[in-house]
Amino acid sequence: MTSRSRFYLNRQGRAAHVFLIPWQLGFLLITAVPLLASLYLAFTNYDILNPPEWTGLENFQRMIHDDQFWASVRVTLIYVLVSVPLQLAFALLLALILDRGLSGLAFYRSAFYLPSLLGSSVAIAILWREIFGDEGLINKGLALIGVHGESWLQNPRTALATLIVLNVWTFGSPMVIFLAGLRQIPDELYEAARVDGAGVWRQFTHVTVPLLTPIIFFNLILQTIGAFQTFTQAHIISGGTGGPANSTLFYTLYVYQQGFVAFDMGYASALAWVLMVAIAVVTALHFLVSKYWVFYGDS
Protein backbone atom coordinates (compact mmCIF):
# COMPACT_ATOMS: atom_id res chain seq x y z
CA MET A 1 0.00 0.00 0.00
CA THR A 2 1.40 3.39 -0.98
CA SER A 3 1.82 6.13 1.58
CA ARG A 4 -0.70 8.20 -0.40
CA SER A 5 -3.44 5.56 -0.19
CA ARG A 6 -2.59 4.88 3.50
CA PHE A 7 -2.93 8.62 4.15
CA TYR A 8 -6.25 8.64 2.28
CA LEU A 9 -7.51 5.68 4.34
CA ASN A 10 -6.37 7.32 7.55
CA ARG A 11 -8.29 10.46 6.59
CA GLN A 12 -11.30 8.29 5.80
CA GLY A 13 -10.90 6.49 9.11
CA ARG A 14 -10.65 9.73 11.03
CA ALA A 15 -13.80 11.05 9.37
CA ALA A 16 -15.59 7.80 10.15
CA HIS A 17 -14.57 8.07 13.79
CA VAL A 18 -15.83 11.64 13.98
CA PHE A 19 -19.19 10.62 12.57
CA LEU A 20 -19.32 7.68 14.97
CA ILE A 21 -18.77 9.86 18.03
CA PRO A 22 -22.49 10.51 18.69
CA TRP A 23 -23.22 6.78 18.62
CA GLN A 24 -20.16 5.97 20.72
CA LEU A 25 -21.14 8.59 23.27
CA GLY A 26 -24.69 7.26 23.31
CA PHE A 27 -23.49 3.70 23.76
CA LEU A 28 -21.13 4.67 26.54
CA LEU A 29 -23.45 6.99 28.45
CA ILE A 30 -26.82 5.33 27.86
CA THR A 31 -25.86 1.67 27.67
CA ALA A 32 -22.39 0.72 28.86
CA VAL A 33 -22.07 2.93 31.94
CA PRO A 34 -25.59 2.16 33.29
CA LEU A 35 -24.98 -1.52 32.58
CA LEU A 36 -21.78 -1.54 34.60
CA ALA A 37 -23.36 0.64 37.28
CA SER A 38 -26.22 -1.83 37.64
CA LEU A 39 -23.70 -4.65 37.97
CA TYR A 40 -22.12 -2.80 40.88
CA LEU A 41 -25.52 -1.96 42.39
CA ALA A 42 -26.49 -5.65 42.25
CA PHE A 43 -24.02 -6.19 45.09
CA THR A 44 -25.31 -3.32 47.21
CA ASN A 45 -28.25 -2.21 49.29
CA TYR A 46 -29.38 0.89 47.39
CA ASP A 47 -32.67 2.74 47.95
CA ILE A 48 -31.84 5.51 45.43
CA LEU A 49 -32.22 8.18 48.11
CA ASN A 50 -29.09 7.23 50.03
CA PRO A 51 -25.65 6.10 48.85
CA PRO A 52 -25.36 2.36 48.04
CA GLU A 53 -23.88 0.07 50.70
CA TRP A 54 -21.84 -2.96 49.63
CA THR A 55 -23.60 -6.17 50.71
CA GLY A 56 -21.80 -8.76 48.60
CA LEU A 57 -23.97 -11.64 47.47
CA GLU A 58 -26.85 -10.82 49.82
CA ASN A 59 -29.23 -9.79 47.03
CA PHE A 60 -28.64 -13.05 45.19
CA GLN A 61 -29.09 -15.09 48.36
CA ARG A 62 -32.32 -13.23 49.05
CA MET A 63 -33.77 -14.49 45.77
CA ILE A 64 -33.55 -18.07 46.97
CA HIS A 65 -36.06 -17.41 49.77
CA ASP A 66 -38.18 -14.89 47.89
CA ASP A 67 -41.59 -16.40 46.99
CA GLN A 68 -42.38 -13.50 44.69
CA PHE A 69 -39.19 -14.09 42.76
CA TRP A 70 -40.05 -17.75 42.15
CA ALA A 71 -43.62 -16.83 41.24
CA SER A 72 -42.30 -14.41 38.62
CA VAL A 73 -39.88 -17.02 37.26
CA ARG A 74 -42.71 -19.53 36.95
CA VAL A 75 -45.05 -17.09 35.19
CA THR A 76 -42.36 -15.95 32.77
CA LEU A 77 -41.26 -19.47 31.86
CA ILE A 78 -44.84 -20.58 31.19
CA TYR A 79 -45.37 -17.50 29.08
CA VAL A 80 -42.20 -18.03 27.03
CA LEU A 81 -42.82 -21.74 26.52
CA VAL A 82 -46.45 -21.36 25.48
CA SER A 83 -46.75 -17.97 23.80
CA VAL A 84 -43.64 -18.00 21.59
CA PRO A 85 -44.42 -21.26 19.70
CA LEU A 86 -48.08 -20.28 19.41
CA GLN A 87 -47.25 -16.83 18.10
CA LEU A 88 -44.73 -18.15 15.58
CA ALA A 89 -47.14 -20.83 14.35
CA PHE A 90 -49.90 -18.26 13.96
CA ALA A 91 -47.59 -15.78 12.22
CA LEU A 92 -46.36 -18.49 9.83
CA LEU A 93 -49.91 -19.58 9.05
CA LEU A 94 -50.96 -16.02 8.22
CA ALA A 95 -47.78 -15.47 6.18
CA LEU A 96 -48.53 -18.61 4.15
CA ILE A 97 -52.05 -17.38 3.45
CA LEU A 98 -50.84 -13.93 2.45
CA ASP A 99 -48.14 -15.49 0.25
CA ARG A 100 -50.77 -17.08 -1.94
CA GLY A 101 -51.01 -13.90 -3.98
CA LEU A 102 -54.17 -12.41 -2.49
CA SER A 103 -55.37 -9.17 -3.97
CA GLY A 104 -55.11 -6.30 -1.49
CA LEU A 105 -52.02 -7.86 0.08
CA ALA A 106 -50.66 -4.50 1.26
CA PHE A 107 -53.92 -3.80 3.09
CA TYR A 108 -53.97 -7.18 4.83
CA ARG A 109 -50.30 -6.90 5.76
CA SER A 110 -50.94 -3.52 7.37
CA ALA A 111 -54.14 -4.68 9.04
CA PHE A 112 -52.45 -7.75 10.52
CA TYR A 113 -49.54 -5.63 11.70
CA LEU A 114 -51.80 -3.17 13.49
CA PRO A 115 -52.21 -5.24 16.70
CA SER A 116 -48.40 -5.23 17.09
CA LEU A 117 -48.53 -1.46 17.29
CA LEU A 118 -51.35 -1.54 19.85
CA GLY A 119 -49.91 -4.37 21.92
CA SER A 120 -48.40 -2.16 24.60
CA SER A 121 -50.97 0.57 24.79
CA VAL A 122 -53.56 1.56 27.35
CA ALA A 123 -56.20 0.94 24.70
CA ILE A 124 -55.39 -2.76 25.00
CA ALA A 125 -56.16 -2.74 28.72
CA ILE A 126 -59.60 -1.34 27.96
CA LEU A 127 -60.14 -3.66 25.01
CA TRP A 128 -59.10 -6.71 27.02
CA ARG A 129 -61.45 -5.73 29.84
CA GLU A 130 -64.26 -5.36 27.31
CA ILE A 131 -63.50 -8.82 25.97
CA PHE A 132 -62.37 -10.82 29.01
CA GLY A 133 -63.91 -8.85 31.90
CA ASP A 134 -66.76 -9.95 34.15
CA GLU A 135 -69.24 -8.26 31.82
CA GLY A 136 -67.08 -8.71 28.73
CA LEU A 137 -67.92 -10.04 25.29
CA ILE A 138 -66.95 -13.62 26.07
CA ASN A 139 -69.10 -13.84 29.18
CA LYS A 140 -71.99 -12.19 27.36
CA GLY A 141 -71.65 -14.85 24.68
CA LEU A 142 -71.54 -17.58 27.32
CA ALA A 143 -74.62 -16.12 28.99
CA LEU A 144 -76.55 -16.68 25.76
CA ILE A 145 -76.08 -20.42 26.23
CA GLY A 146 -76.83 -20.23 29.94
CA VAL A 147 -73.27 -20.29 31.25
CA HIS A 148 -72.32 -17.76 33.92
CA GLY A 149 -68.69 -16.85 33.40
CA GLU A 150 -66.46 -14.91 35.79
CA SER A 151 -63.86 -12.32 34.82
CA TRP A 152 -61.10 -14.08 32.89
CA LEU A 153 -58.70 -11.38 33.99
CA GLN A 154 -59.40 -11.94 37.68
CA ASN A 155 -59.17 -15.69 37.71
CA PRO A 156 -55.59 -16.88 38.46
CA ARG A 157 -56.18 -19.91 36.21
CA THR A 158 -57.05 -17.82 33.14
CA ALA A 159 -55.40 -14.41 33.60
CA LEU A 160 -52.07 -15.50 32.12
CA ALA A 161 -53.86 -17.15 29.21
CA THR A 162 -55.41 -13.81 28.26
CA LEU A 163 -51.92 -12.30 28.06
CA ILE A 164 -50.75 -15.23 25.95
CA VAL A 165 -53.67 -14.57 23.61
CA LEU A 166 -52.57 -10.93 23.49
CA ASN A 167 -49.04 -11.94 22.53
CA VAL A 168 -50.28 -14.31 19.85
CA TRP A 169 -52.53 -11.55 18.53
CA THR A 170 -49.52 -9.26 18.08
CA PHE A 171 -48.03 -11.54 15.45
CA GLY A 172 -47.39 -8.77 12.90
CA SER A 173 -43.63 -8.52 13.23
CA PRO A 174 -42.75 -12.24 12.81
CA MET A 175 -45.40 -12.52 10.11
CA VAL A 176 -43.76 -9.84 7.97
CA ILE A 177 -40.38 -11.55 8.40
CA PHE A 178 -41.88 -14.92 7.48
CA LEU A 179 -43.51 -13.36 4.45
CA ALA A 180 -40.17 -11.97 3.30
CA GLY A 181 -38.61 -15.42 3.82
CA LEU A 182 -41.34 -17.17 1.85
CA ARG A 183 -40.74 -14.81 -1.07
CA GLN A 184 -37.13 -15.99 -1.21
CA ILE A 185 -38.02 -19.65 -1.83
CA PRO A 186 -37.69 -20.33 -5.58
CA ASP A 187 -40.88 -21.48 -7.34
CA GLU A 188 -38.84 -24.11 -9.18
CA LEU A 189 -38.51 -26.11 -5.99
CA TYR A 190 -42.28 -26.27 -5.57
CA GLU A 191 -42.66 -27.19 -9.27
CA ALA A 192 -40.12 -29.96 -8.87
CA ALA A 193 -41.92 -31.22 -5.77
CA ARG A 194 -45.25 -31.21 -7.56
CA VAL A 195 -43.71 -33.12 -10.49
CA ASP A 196 -42.51 -35.69 -7.94
CA GLY A 197 -46.09 -36.04 -6.71
CA ALA A 198 -45.85 -34.00 -3.50
CA GLY A 199 -49.12 -32.62 -2.20
CA VAL A 200 -49.57 -29.30 -0.40
CA TRP A 201 -48.62 -30.73 3.00
CA ARG A 202 -45.48 -32.45 1.69
CA GLN A 203 -44.47 -29.29 -0.15
CA PHE A 204 -44.86 -27.43 3.13
CA THR A 205 -42.91 -29.93 5.22
CA HIS A 206 -40.22 -30.78 2.65
CA VAL A 207 -39.71 -27.48 0.85
CA THR A 208 -41.13 -24.55 2.79
CA VAL A 209 -40.13 -25.46 6.31
CA PRO A 210 -36.54 -26.56 5.58
CA LEU A 211 -35.82 -23.46 3.52
CA LEU A 212 -37.53 -21.27 6.07
CA THR A 213 -35.61 -22.63 9.06
CA PRO A 214 -33.13 -19.71 9.19
CA ILE A 215 -36.10 -17.33 9.32
CA ILE A 216 -37.86 -19.47 11.92
CA PHE A 217 -34.65 -19.50 13.94
CA PHE A 218 -34.30 -15.73 13.66
CA ASN A 219 -37.91 -15.19 14.74
CA LEU A 220 -37.55 -17.73 17.53
CA ILE A 221 -34.55 -15.90 18.98
CA LEU A 222 -36.20 -12.48 18.73
CA GLN A 223 -39.54 -13.56 20.12
CA THR A 224 -38.00 -15.60 22.95
CA ILE A 225 -35.91 -12.66 24.09
CA GLY A 226 -38.96 -10.40 23.75
CA ALA A 227 -41.13 -12.81 25.74
CA PHE A 228 -38.60 -12.93 28.58
CA GLN A 229 -38.76 -9.13 28.68
CA THR A 230 -42.55 -8.83 28.56
CA PHE A 231 -43.63 -6.02 30.81
CA THR A 232 -46.07 -3.46 29.49
CA GLN A 233 -49.02 -5.72 28.78
CA ALA A 234 -48.93 -7.25 32.25
CA HIS A 235 -48.36 -3.87 33.85
CA ILE A 236 -51.32 -2.31 32.09
CA ILE A 237 -53.77 -5.18 32.42
CA SER A 238 -52.96 -6.04 36.06
CA GLY A 239 -52.58 -2.41 37.05
CA GLY A 240 -48.93 -3.05 37.89
CA THR A 241 -49.70 -5.63 40.59
CA GLY A 242 -49.04 -8.85 38.68
CA GLY A 243 -52.34 -10.12 40.05
CA PRO A 244 -54.59 -11.86 40.57
CA ALA A 245 -52.54 -13.82 43.11
CA ASN A 246 -49.26 -13.29 41.19
CA SER A 247 -50.65 -15.06 38.13
CA THR A 248 -49.37 -12.29 35.80
CA LEU A 249 -46.31 -11.35 37.82
CA PHE A 250 -43.81 -11.34 34.96
CA TYR A 251 -40.16 -11.21 35.86
CA THR A 252 -39.62 -7.71 34.48
CA LEU A 253 -42.73 -6.51 36.31
CA TYR A 254 -41.21 -7.80 39.52
CA VAL A 255 -37.93 -6.04 38.72
CA TYR A 256 -39.91 -2.85 38.17
CA GLN A 257 -41.84 -3.30 41.43
CA GLN A 258 -38.61 -3.71 43.37
CA GLY A 259 -36.82 -0.85 41.63
CA PHE A 260 -39.52 1.77 41.27
CA VAL A 261 -42.21 0.88 43.80
CA ALA A 262 -40.16 -0.50 46.69
CA PHE A 263 -37.13 1.63 45.65
CA ASP A 264 -34.92 -1.36 46.33
CA MET A 265 -32.66 -0.68 43.37
CA GLY A 266 -29.87 -2.96 44.57
CA TYR A 267 -32.16 -5.99 44.57
CA ALA A 268 -33.77 -4.89 41.30
CA SER A 269 -30.31 -4.68 39.70
CA ALA A 270 -29.46 -8.17 40.91
CA LEU A 271 -32.75 -9.46 39.50
CA ALA A 272 -32.06 -7.73 36.19
CA TRP A 273 -28.63 -9.33 35.92
CA VAL A 274 -30.06 -12.77 36.62
CA LEU A 275 -32.52 -12.20 33.79
CA MET A 276 -29.77 -11.05 31.46
CA VAL A 277 -27.69 -14.13 32.20
CA ALA A 278 -30.75 -16.37 31.78
CA ILE A 279 -31.55 -14.85 28.39
CA ALA A 280 -27.91 -15.19 27.33
CA VAL A 281 -27.89 -18.86 28.33
CA VAL A 282 -31.17 -19.60 26.54
CA THR A 283 -29.98 -17.79 23.42
CA ALA A 284 -26.69 -19.69 23.49
CA LEU A 285 -28.63 -22.96 23.80
CA HIS A 286 -30.74 -21.97 20.82
CA PHE A 287 -27.59 -21.43 18.78
CA LEU A 288 -26.09 -24.72 19.95
CA VAL A 289 -29.19 -26.69 19.03
CA SER A 290 -29.71 -24.79 15.77
CA LYS A 291 -27.03 -26.77 13.94
CA TYR A 292 -29.32 -29.82 14.18
CA TRP A 293 -32.37 -28.24 12.58
CA VAL A 294 -31.55 -24.99 10.81
CA PHE A 295 -30.76 -25.43 7.12
CA TYR A 296 -28.74 -22.79 5.36
CA GLY A 297 -28.73 -22.94 1.57
CA ASP A 298 -24.94 -22.80 1.42
CA SER A 299 -24.32 -25.57 3.97
Binding site: D134, E150, S151, L153, Q154, G239, T241, G243
Partner: peptide, 10 residues
Protein backbone atom coordinates in the same frame (compact mmCIF):
# COMPACT_ATOMS: atom_id res chain seq x y z
CA UNK B 1 -68.57 -7.70 45.50
CA UNK B 2 -66.43 -10.60 44.37
CA UNK B 3 -63.03 -9.86 42.80
CA UNK B 4 -64.53 -10.84 39.48
CA UNK B 5 -67.46 -8.44 39.82
CA UNK B 6 -65.18 -5.54 40.69
CA UNK B 7 -62.36 -6.56 38.31
CA UNK B 8 -59.70 -6.94 40.97
CA UNK B 9 -58.47 -5.16 44.06
CA UNK B 10 -58.70 -1.38 44.13
Amino acid sequence: LSLSEQEGMG
